[in-house]
Nucleic acid binder design. Structure first.
Lengths: 279, 279
DNA sequence: CGAGTCATTGATCTGTCTCAATATTAGTGG
DNA sequence: CCACTAATATTGAGACAGATCAATGACTCG
């Protein structure tokens, strides 16, 4: 069912070096950026397009350092002083808020090209935590430098505004999901979104490797991990997806999309329900 | 229980003219801004502080028009071309997304000093709807003018960034609410947040007039209107609040805060549950 | 005054959570 | 290298919070 080369295909940026052991200690291997933004893979994701040559040179000033973060490593913590944004060069992160009573709410999953830390601008302090779910590399972008440069480079200014607005829209969509969808619609929506974003980065349109646990998915979707697991099984039984641990193959994205829009109650026991009885 | 002058006290900006009938037609009474931002009530809410005098003059250029929106009037609609941000001068709005299947999800309630339309920056088109819940007045701020000015006025630039970041944090908090709180915690959190924001605008710390229906509250909180109504009644019975239609008096904000942090299940039938048995 | 909106409350139903048992896998240390 | 422990995932049975369905009352507005 799964391509033997699947693992590598699904994550060309993550070499198959043995996964390092989980550690909550921040790996502080910062170093000056040698390769410039101009030749970065994720260039179109985190930088504006249509720059003049002289502007391009200045843009490289936005990133002053890179940093490796090991799997399990904290990029920033709620309460930390905000000084910079982080552009993910490779890897995968989750961001989450921890409430006083110990419960966690995952607020998003970020991958290469995504920007982390926007929450910290308002109060000069971060309000959530960001943890790497696999060995990752991020570009540090001091925010006052971004502000300075975007005062002279209008495309950069527009880009910063767009990135922040995009985050607002993304969270709006998540609120819709959390506020009004059934468990099946939530997971279907989640999978489609994830595979879309991977596809935009050059990965498969139908296969993906989850970097997070069922519990983290559940936290993001406002469900318990058991519910996530059950819905995965249900989808698999209906032939919508193929689930093997964290390897997911989307078999019928059309039907998954239908699940997202399915009303809460009315008109059951038809259409899709008949598929539940397949062998 | 309620101050006779309560209604006026609670909404000094809304004269007690008879409420106009609900209409979906946009009231297009735009007119040049005569009174400047410099002397606006909501000044500190939507504009940066610590400006030089010459900068202050330029800031007034940000707002080129004002617009009255009647109760029920649409400020903007999902799909509309984005051209400007809206600063609420007086009144009250809800923003919401409508999904294909007709269901609505309220994504926020906005009051004087709040800024609407940030979602439209990313794609140049609005992604949600904004409707006035009472007769309101907004300041139109053409976004390209904001961008131009914020390239020369650093405090304005910082302010724009902060406003957008604040919205991101607010939505993060809402995701926490929707993803992991019980119905009681959601409503308690909602009431405390609302009264806090009103208080920051000079209103009472303990009394407020809801501008939205139970259904709109429910949509925002991911609950059905009946549940909202029941939780209101429960709070009232316990003496946490006094509920008279849309007039709410917060009697025990300390206990309300406790409700927010109450765990989901464990350790029931004590503390607050004993209070449910009060006469 | 009649129609429509809004709110409250009760009775019942159900989707998801909780509790629990079992596999499977990954990481750790001898 | 293998045993051991912890983390992760699956699945079942039962419980409960909140949804659904339904009836009623209060209020608003033509």
């Amino acid at each position: 069912m799964f391509d033997p080369a699947f693992k590598n295909f699904a994550s060309p940026l993550a070499p198959d070096a043995p996964a390092e052991r989980r550690s909550t200690v921040l790996a502080l291997h910062s170093y000056p950026a040698k390769s410039t933004c101009s030749n970065c893979n994720s260039r179109d994701m985190c930088l504006p397009s249509g720059l003049k040559i002289e502007e391009m040179d200045q843009i490289d000033l936005v990133v002053d350092q890179r940093r490796h973060v090991k799997k399990g490593g904290l990029l920033f913590h709620s309460g930390d002083r905000f000084a910079q944004l982080f552009a993910i060069r490779s890897g995968f992160f989750k961001s989450y808020i921890a409430s006083e009573d110990g419960s966690e709410q995952v607020t998003g999953f970020q991958m290469a090209g995504d920007v982390l830390g926007l929450d910290g601008i308002a109060s000069e302090h971060h309000t959530c935590n960001a943890v790497a779910l696999e060995d990752s590399e991020v570009c540090l972008m001091p925010f006052n430098r971004i502000q300075d440069l975007s005062r002279t480079i209008a495309p950069l200014q527009r880009h910063v505004h767009r990135i922040m607005s995009r985050e607002i829209v993304r969270e709006n969509d998540t609120m819709l999901l959390l506020g009004s969808m059934r468990s099946e619609a939530r997971l279907a929506s989640f999978l489609l979104n994830l595979v879309d974003r991977m596809h935009a980065r050059g990965f498969s349109q139908s296969q993906l490797v989850l970097r997070m646990t069922r519990e983290e998915i559940g936290s993001y979707l406002g469900l318990k991990l058991e519910t996530v697991s059950r819905v995965f099984s249900k989808f698999a039984k209906r032939g919508l997806v193929d689930v093997d641990k964290r390897n997911i193959a989307i078999l019928r994205s059309d039907l998954l999309r239908a699940v997202v829009h399915q009303p809460k109650r009315r008109g059951r026991s038809d259409s899709l329900d008949c598929m539940a009885k397949l062998p």
